[in-house]
Design a protein around this nucleic acid. Structure first.
Lengths: 221, 221
DNA sequence: ACCTGAACACCGTTCAAGT
DNA sequence: ACCTGAACACCGTTCAAGT
């Protein structure tokens, strides 16, 4: 019987694309992106490194599957209520997804991954914007801005990183010469306290949404 | 005589933190972040891998020096004119810096780097915001949003990546089932055309600045 | 102080072989 | 079709030794 390529049937040793990707995601979550190696993953699965190459062409393909898997976990919000509220919920969920699987974000470095799993978020975002009255190209621009802000915040202000980073930051800020960095030194306490909070994220997000509405929607009235 | 990228003559013992970091940055620019290895860098410098460890404790310390070097290249704008204009110029320059040295961005993954070189930008940003009338904690929040947006855009919408990515994106969007992704498929042309332009960046930036002004400054009047 | 050379414990991947 | 085992060309870093 011919098997579909994407079928999740497990073989004698219990290996399948599904299972490999899931264990790889767990491994990356626990040990960080550097901990996710083909050899380490094979060890985790009690299998030879080369066994993985039966299911994936190489590490890149495996990694794409891992990111897609992580993206599928997102619980997309319902499409009810004001458009700004819908986008808030969507981007909050996107950020929480990245928070859960930080390494999945850094995996998407050079090549843009556009598998169906990862495109569910963008699809919903575009739908909300189009329905709100944005033209196609305005909607694309608006989504781009919202998306950049959200992933940028998750990348450089993640709470996970912040917990480890806070004392480091405090020391680094204290070490800056205050004749050269007066603004930073004077606001050091505020800066450290403010690192990576969910509130900070939501506040910036609302500012961006306000601005988008003004520039794209209100101008025609 | 083999043509070297670096112009200055190196004597037999001409190794220094400065020179090592500069060659490392060139290497990362040319070959990507994966091309920057201690062994490869040593080969480039006609030296044993271990010679580098005389000047740097390890790869992490070297990499911090590389990022700091890249950050020092930024030509910060003058502090004249309206505050929104000043921030526009600053963040545009920040984005261009990342565009010039894409790998420097991805280096800052786990640990937050706060060397004097990289803090010049944040310092100026904070100064502008404080002078504009933002309170300390509002200024921190505002900078955080602007910074996240800028680096997020540079990370996920870089023109460098886009040139390589455009046809890939076109194919990937075309491959999405349009009953499941109606919004994306209908705006595919706009989405591909709009990828990573400088205009897109500036437009989103202005929206964010507008929103920040409304939420933080105008509310008190 | 500055650099070399050998060594250790890792990588991703190819290739030939086993079942 | 699925997996093993050995091999190749890489890593970062330690340690002892040379100058």
């Amino acid at each position: 019987m011919p098997a579909k390529a994407s079928s999740e049937r497990s073989t004698a040793s219990g290996l399948s694309r599904e299972r490999i990707a899931r264990v790889a995601l767990e491994l990356a979550d626990q040990e960080g992106l550097d901990g996710l190696s083909m050899r380490r993953l094979a060890r985790e699965l009690d299998v030879t490194p080369m066994a993985l190459y039966v299911h994936f062409r190489g590490k890149d393909e495996l990694i794409d599957a891992v990111v897609d898997l992580a993206a599928r976990e997102l619980k997309l919000p319902s499409e009810r209520g004001p458009w700004k509220r819908q986008l808030e919920l969507l981007l909050r969920e996107l950020r929480r997804g990245v928070e859960r699987h930080p390494s999945a974000l850094w995996i998407r470095r050079e090549r843009p991954l556009m598998s169906p799993g990862v495109m569910r978020g963008p699809e919903l975002g575009m739908r909300i914007l189009l329905r709100a009255g944005f033209s196609k190209s305005d909607a694309v621009a608006a989504w781009r801005a919202l998306f950049s802000y959200t992933l940028g915040f998750a990348s450089f202000s993640s709470t996970a990183r912040v917990e480890n980073a806070r004392h480091h930051a405090r020391a680094a800020l204290a070490a800056l010469p205050d004749d050269e960095f007066p603004a930073l030194v004077s606001a050091a306490t505020e800066a450290v306290d403010a690192m990576g909070g969910e509130d900070q994220f939501e506040f910036g997000l609302r500012c961006l949404l306000d601005g988008l509405q003004r520039r794209y929607l209100d101008r025609e009235k």
